[in-house]
Structure formats: structure tokens, C-alpha cells
Amino acid sequence: MYPGTFDPFTPGHRDVVDRARRMFDQVTILVAVNDGKRPSQTTAARARGIRSLLPAGWENVAVAAWHGLTVDYCRANGCRVIIRGVRNSTDYLREHELAATNEVLGVTTLFVPARPELVAMSSTAVRALRA
């Protein structure tokens, strides 16, 4: 399961999903709520938008909207692994703390490093370019 706010869903996000779908039988993109962020669209609207961007051949990729803890979604839906993209050491340090907590709660986190050409890509940067 690959959780995020995805506001917007960037080429970096798509790359992480593409790589994950090759590693796992099923990948769910979990469009979630982050109390620290103010997304430009509702969770449901972002999920619909992501669905429309996925190639037809990606049959093992699903999209779901969720309002709650990521680990609760994992438990309720039998997800054993949380996938997290990391661009740099700042991302890694922040994600490592969450991963440690999720591991204690029974869900492993797999870090997928960003490809060099996508390291500078972030939802914040994409939103700024659109403004």
C-alpha cells in the first residue's frame, strides 16, 4: 500500500507506483488525509483523478480514499507493507520515525528511493508552478 496526500499526483509518485507494482501482486494507492496539509481537492476527488491517470495495463493497482490511520487501513485490508518514496535524507529521517511506529504495530515499511531525475519533484513544487 502506497499512502499519501497526492496533491497533486506527480511523476515521482507514478514512478514509485510503477516500481512497486512490479514487486507486489497488488498495490493500493491510498489517498489519505494529513492534518498538517490543506489539499486543493477532497480526498475522493484526488482518488478519482489518480484513477484516471493510471495506464489501462496496470491491473494490479487500485486506488482508495481513507480518513484514518494508515496502519488501520492496512489491518482492515490485509496490507502487509507500506511503500514510501524518499527523495533525500530529510524525507528518510521523517519517514524512518513513522516506519518504526508502524513496525511496532505490525506493518513493515519499504523505502523506495527517488530516481535521480525525479529528486527535485514534489507536490509542493508542482503546485507552485501551477500558480
Rank of each mutant, 00 (worst) to 15 (best):
Y73E: 01
Y73R: 07
F111R: 09
F6E: 00
N77P: 01
G85P: 05
Y73N: 03
T124D: 10
T28H: 04
L93M: 12
P116M: 13
A128D: 13
A65F: 09
H13L: 05
S122V: 04
E97W: 05
C74E: 08
A56D: 15
L129Q: 13
V104E: 14
Y92F: 15
G12V: 02
R87P: 00
A120T: 11
T108A: 15
D25H: 15
L98A: 14
A62P: 06
A45D: 15
L129A: 14
S123P: 01
R75D: 09
R19Y: 04
R22V: 10
L69R: 13
T109K: 07
R130H: 13
V107D: 04
R14M: 14
A99Q: 02
G106H: 08
R38V: 13
G68L: 08
A62F: 09
M121W: 03
A131R: 14
S123L: 05
A120Q: 09
M121R: 07
L54A: 09
I82H: 06
V119S: 06
R115N: 11
I83V: 14
V81C: 09
H96L: 13
L98P: 03
G12I: 01
R94C: 15
A44W: 10
L54Q: 06
T101A: 12
S123G: 09
L30K: 08
P39F: 02
R51N: 13
F24Q: 09
D15M: 01
S123Y: 02
K37D: 06
G4P: 01
R21T: 03
S40D: 12
H13I: 05
L129D: 07
N88S: 09
G36L: 12
R84Q: 05
G78A: 02
S89V: 15
R127A: 07
R84C: 05
R115F: 06
H13K: 04
L53W: 08
Y2F: 15
D7M: 03
Q41D: 15
R84Y: 03
A76S: 13
N77W: 11
F6L: 02
G78I: 05
H13E: 01
R48C: 08
